[in-house]
């Protein structure tokens, strides 16, 4: 009796969030999961029969298979690039001796979150477009105009821009957490700045790097707005396809199956990219 009471007490704190998650997240997902194993019968309707045909049709249509591969490729490239770009900045923020400078930098990064992704996507649309600043510079230098918009590169540029702050915010604390005497210890033991970084700072900030990669992958694999704006229908990612199936065609069976393919693809991609980081031996 006393034990149960304690158990209830312990979990009561989780209850509000748990209710929301179960009713509005887990339940619909479960429903879609069920629907993905039934045949398409009409708008928002599925048949009675249990079937794998939705999944089979995904993997037999080259258009959808290509989309899965493209999604993984774009997500992996932009996440890795974002983390590589975020690391030096994070290092600078973590090591900034002036706390005012550090706060200004962190606030600037937080500030990016206040703007909507649509706004940010559209600004890149202007920058990369044929009358955008890049092409203006190129043409004013007498060079040929280049077409970046509506390409994978454009989507990747937009995504890197969106996820960079997430990467920085994941990496900064992991660098800050490293005891400064470890670095000093390595320096005194004969390691120069570069070797100290390779043997001490980098391996000890790996948890931050893998956290940053996971966050970036989770965001980019499910990207919707950026590929829609900067891809212009030519570089659709899985979320765009799912949206079309579910919302435009109202095919919940195929849309559901695609959702679970996206989920599986996400988990596999994260596993493949992050696992090696845990196994590296650094000495």
């Amino acid at each position: 009796m006393h034990g149960t009471l304690n158990l209830i007490r312990r979990y009561i704190l989780c209850l509000p969030a748990l209710i929301i998650l179960i009713f509005f997240f887990a339940a619909p997902i479960f429903q879609i999961f069920i629907m993905s194993f039934h045949p398409y019968k009409g708008p928002m309707e599925v048949g009675e029969k249990f079937t794998f045909e939705n999944y089979i049709s995904i993997f037999t249509r080259s258009y959808l298979v290509n989309c899965i591969i493209r999604t993984i490729r774009i997500a992996a490239c932009s996440s890795i690039v974002a983390v590589i770009m975020a690391y030096p900045l994070s290092y600078y923020i973590a090591k900034a001796t002036s706390s005012i400078r550090r706060k200004i930098l962190l606030f600037t990064i937080f500030f990016c979150f206040f703007n909507s992704t649509i706004g940010r996507g559209l600004s890149w649309y202007l920058i990369l477009g044929s009358k955008g600043i890049i092409n203006l510079i190129l043409t004013s230098l007498g060079m040929q105009e280049i077409r970046i918009l509506h390409s994978e590169l454009a989507v990747e540029i937009g995504l890197v821009y969106v996820i960079l702050p997430f990467a920085v915010l994941s990496i900064v604390p992991s660098i800050q957490k490293i005891d400064p005497s470890l670095r000093e210890s390595a320096l005194i033991l004969g390691a120069n700045e570069f070797k100290t970084f390779i043997h001490v700072t980098l391996p000890l900030s790996l948890p931050g790097i893998s956290a940053a990669l996971s966050t970036c992958l989770a965001i980019t694999l499910a990207a919707f707005v950026i590929p829609m704006i900067l891809g212009g229908g030519l570089v659709d990612m899985l979320s765009n396809i799912i949206y079309i199936r579910m919302k435009a065609v109202l095919n919940f069976a195929l849309g559901g199956a695609l959702s679970f393919v996206l989920l599986a693809a996400s988990l596999i991609t994260m596993y493949v990219i992050i696992l090696p980081l845990r196994k590296v031996k650094w000495t």
């Binding site: 005497s181 470890l182 210890s185 005194i188 120069n192």
Partner: peptide
């Protein structure tokens, strides 16, 4: 720089990697 001095140091918190 410290790495050229051929000294070594034991820190208060040991600073083991």
């Amino acid at each position: 720089p410290p790495y050229a001095r051929n000294m070594s140091m034991v820190f208060q918190n040991y600073a083991l990697f």
